[in-house]
């Protein structure tokens, strides 16, 4: 029996950890008990920041990686964090999965880091929760004290928001006391952090998602597995995408239902479509920056981006024609 040491920077709560545990139990089941998993949650072994190095040096066999923590090392993979109007979880994850497992630049990047890419995660679509206003137009962002992160945060900042970078765990307090008025978050996560207790206006932005967020394995560990077990690993990793996409969509829907009912419900609005188009245009305008950063790292930036967009289109088509796999 092979015991796989699995490190995750997040605590053992919520959709992510539940689906990762599903993956672990499937591995065990389908390998007839040959592949076991031992989780180390909450960064007990090493922090998310060290995940790339930690798996590369086999401190853990498997870990969750987040490109924002090691932007240079994972620059090719960070294409998934470009703010694009690609908010379908399943489409996004499938596109990233295929890109990471087939594009030569990404394969080489993971290989150089002594990693084998297993599967993808997603934050799901980005929404804006505010204490007492909706973001109907881009002008509504001017002067707003807002907690936001990453490339999305940079765009909010360009639109005149005062962007503060806080961890999601600190936002409740910050919203409650008025240190920030608005927060960039994801539907299920708003409820997990109970932010709907202190902020009641949700602008359903359904913008892009963070997709440079995946699971990797140490190369030697991978090569040490039997062919049969590698086969199992690949199957389970691919099935994970469907499983996770289904679960997180359900979690988002249920969270919205719960938050909009009850004594003190959340109010929901959508951004004006013309304004949202402008916002999406600003997201596209950041593409050249990303391509330049990838080119600086000696990577074919334009080609990676084009391949990614082609894959997004491919899976959108599959979804439109056949629906989600779990509905069939």
């Amino acid at each position: 029996e092979t015991m796989l040491r699995w490190s995750d920077g997040q605590p053992n709560r919520g959709v992510n950890s539940e689906t990762l545990q599903w993956m672990a139990s499937e591995l065990e089941k389908r390998s007839n008990g040959d592949l076991g998993v031992e989780f180390h949650w909450g960064g007990a072994l090493f922090k998310s920041k060290s995940a790339v190095k930690g798996v590369g040096t086999r401190s853990a066999d498997i870990a969750t990686i987040i490109a924002a923590y090691t932007p240079k090392e994972l620059v090719a993979y960070s294409v998934g964090d470009i703010p694009l109007p690609n908010s379908d979880v399943w489409v996004g994850m499938r596109a990233m999965y295929e890109l990471a497992t087939t594009h030569p630049a990404l394969k080489k990047m993971f290989d150089d880091l002594n990693l084998v890419y297993l599967t993808n995660l997603s934050t799901s679509a980005i929404e804006i929760l505010c204490k007492d206003k909706f973001i109907n137009t881009l002008d509504d962002l001017k002067g707003v004290k807002m907690r936001a992160v990453g490339p999305y945060g940079r765009i909010f900042k360009d639109l005149g928001a005062d962007v503060a970078r806080l961890s999601q765990a600190k936002v409740y307090n910050a919203l409650d006391s008025g240190i920030v008025e608005c927060n960039q978050n994801y539907m299920y996560s708003i409820e997990v952090f109970k932010q709907n207790d202190v902020a009641k206006k949700l602008t359903k932005l359904d913008w892009g998602q963070h997709l440079a967020f995946g699971v990797v394995m140490n190369k030697e560990t991978y090569e040490g597995l039997s062919d049969a077990n590698r086969q199992v690993l690949q199957e389970v990793s691919s099935d994970f995408i469907d499983q996770f996409a289904r679960r997180i969509q359900e979690a988002n829907i249920k969270a919205l239902e719960r938050m909009t009912s009850g004594d003190s419900p959340l109010e929901v609005a959508e951004m004006d479509p013309n304004e949202k188009a402008k916002l999406e245009k600003m997201g596209f305008d950041t593409v050249p920056n990303w391509i330049e950063r990838a080119n600086d790292a000696g990577l074919p930036g334009q080609d990676i981006f084009d391949s990614y967009m082609a894959l997004v289109a491919k899976y959108e088509k599959i979804r439109d024609e056949k629906g989600y796999p779990w509905n069939n």
Binding site: L45, F46, K49, S50, G54, G56, T57, R58, S59
Partner: peptide, 20 residues
């Protein structure tokens, strides 16, 4: 050597990453 390589991440993550 393998043991040492694995241990280095634990050492840097729990010192540098922690205090940064």
């Amino acid at each position: 050597s393998a043991g040492w390589r694995s241990a280095t991440t634990i050492l840097t993550s729990n010192s540098y990453d922690f205090v940064h």
